[in-house]
Design a protein around this nucleic acid. Structure first.
Lengths: 343, 343
DNA sequence: CAAAGTCTTTCCAACGTTGTAATCTTCAGC
DNA sequence: GCTGAAGATTACAACGTTGGAAAGACTTTG
């Protein structure tokens, strides 16, 4: 059977509690005793039983990360960043995939596995602002994403409006004026799509241009195939445009592929910028300009906030909102020689 | 505080053990009693304490998946497949990233978290055949990948040699004869690189062609940037070739990008096929022919085997080897009009 | 209608750990 | 050398659950 504290205690000729004290760095242990215990631990290869510890202490040192889909590059990279941040602080991460489904998200939030974790990072997709009442669970939680603001818990997100505005401005500065807002969700006000559309509008306004509704292209699901599909329709419709502000990188890449198939040159004929800075954008042909949403900062902050809540260190603090810094990443897909191209 | 069995028992006016029996579907419970208990559970919102259950039963229903890197599309998709397979059987997955480092892999294998899981799926990268002695841990384990064969545990892998041979043949059939083996590791015999090179050689041999060592291109790390880098050197060297058998999709995509930059047309000038069938291959320009390694089958089989070991159902069975079915996926990057192009 | 089953429920102990409080040891101060 | 305080160690109980076996209820059978 597995080695327990009992065995270690026996080997070191101390009580079980002393072993526990050594392991947990309690004060008041004679150096000689500590030595002896550590030696016994080493010799027997003792490793604590985490279930027992969890039972007794009420802590498991496990946190849960709820995301829509690991196969989606953005979330894979987010998961990696979260796991790295958590690992630094000695926590393990369980990833739960929701598929972006409302039902599934609720299932997970209220499921039995919540009882096995100390806290949750919940990247909301299926639920929305109107569901804010449903997310008040006993487990400490930090929200991610753009679907729910001002909920009962801390919230970490990116600067959607500002970033989208900057992306749009980036194209405007390069002399493009007929810009598609690619990936809109017509009836959405908040949510990534709604906010990014708002940023797009503001940039146009600042530049003294009118918002033209036909240039806002709906793409329901933000996968590459959807981007390709939507772009195919745009081209068939004969709509005129010279730039694309895509609301994420995947649909940008899908659209880019379709445009190239149709003989359009990027960036000469059409300039395009995406959102998320997924790894692939550095290797596409042409490389894709995009927005770095501050993923690492988001992960670090979210984990730190969650641990504060778990430790009770932020008990009195009201729900916090944090927006990460973003950056415009300029690559080939917007590399246009232009008089207006400023440094 | 949280609701426990004690509260449920009280509410249903039965003993704690009866509640436990109901939850665990023990036989011999009066229908009326079961009803009453379930009602109480529902009403109080009881959820079992998994730490306590784990402590008492020795089972946590958690399995660990050790992979090199989540940001790598192949492993993200593998993780997704494993999580789906595990979820079907009521298990949770903890992902541990090793970075492919030998030290880190050993750390994880012998770390305290192994004590919190029922079993491990270990996608070997840092260790090798010579380390076979180091992986004999008490936790049930199933190995994945091509680094260790005939270890002390079950092993699930793809048909590397056969698949690589088929990929090579695919190009040969299309009239290409000067084929790069792209992604070789010179001194490796087993390991994906070694096996895939072997498949490449066999296909040449079957076609009556000589193996030319200068056509085997070393690419140490199989990331896109490494593929790009290696291809740049090949082009500079002036080496002549008309086809590329890339040992994974990422380096294929990197290489493709570089070749296109250099004005080479794909597939007209150079035909190229990859390995892994990652999602991106369906959307690159041109779309990339590749090998579907049977990822879903690998995940399903590995999880099933692991659970058999955990349940002790396969106690007497010696270590098993399983090779998944593969498929050649023909896409644009090898779509060459040719007399020899067979159906 | 008693004996012998079969179902159903309960009691008790244990899993391995840590918090609390009590006990034992050491050492300074006089 | 004695007192008291601080330092080091230990005993005990408890966390919430489940396995094993005993006890209670009900049914069948001769």
């Amino acid at each position: 059977m597995a080695v327990t504290m009992r065995d270690v205690a026996q080997a070191a000729d101390v009580s079980i509690k002393t072993v526990s004290n050594v392991i947990n760095d309690h004060p008041n242990i004679k150096a000689e005793t500590r030595e002896r215990v550590l030696l016994a631990i080493e010799k027997l290869g003792y490793q604590p039983n985490l279930s027992a510890r969890g039972l007794r202490s009420g802590r498991t040192d496990v946190i849960s990360l709820i995301i829509p889909d690991l196969k989606n590059a953005y979330f894979a990279e987010l998961a990696d960043a979260v796991m790295t941040a958590a690992s630094k602080r000695g926590k393990v991460v369980i990833i739960e995939q929701s598929g972006g489904s409302r039902t599934r998200e609720l299932e997970i939030l209220h499921g039995p596995r919540m009882r096995m974790v100390d806290g949750v990072l919940y990247s909301v997709l299926g639920l929305g602002q109107e569901d804010v009442g449903l997310i008040d669970i006993p487990t400490p939680m930090v929200l991610l994403g753009e679907r729910i603001f001002h909920g009962p818990t801390d919230h970490v997100t990116m600067q959607n409006i500002e970033a989208s505005q900057a992306a749009t401005k980036h194209l405007l500065q390069r002399g493009r004026t007929k810009l598609l807002a690619f990936g809109a969700h017509r009836n959405e006000v908040i949510g990534s799509a709604g906010l990014r559309l708002e940023g797009y509008r503001r940039a146009l306004q600042n530049a003294g241009l009118d918002y033209r509704d036909e240039l806002a292209i709906d793409v329901q699901s933000w996968h590459r195939s959807d981007g390709a599909q939507a772009m195919r329709q745009v081209l068939e419709s004969g709509l005129e445009f010279d730039g694309v502000v895509a609301f994420n990188d995947s649909i940008a890449l899908g659209a880019m592929r379709v445009m190239q198939d149709a003989g359009l040159r990027i960036p000469e004929d059409i300039a395009i910028i995406g959102f998320d800075d997924i790894d692939e954008t550095r290797y596409s042909l042409p490389t894709l300009s995009t927005i770095d949403p501050g993923r690492r900062q988001i992960a670090e902050t979210a984990v730190a906030m969650l641990l504060e809540r778990i430790d009770g260190a932020a008990e009195a603090t009201p729900a916090r909102e944090f927006e990460a810094d973003f950056k415009v990443i300029s690559r080939e897909s917007t590399a246009i020689k232009s008089a207006e191209d400023s440094a």
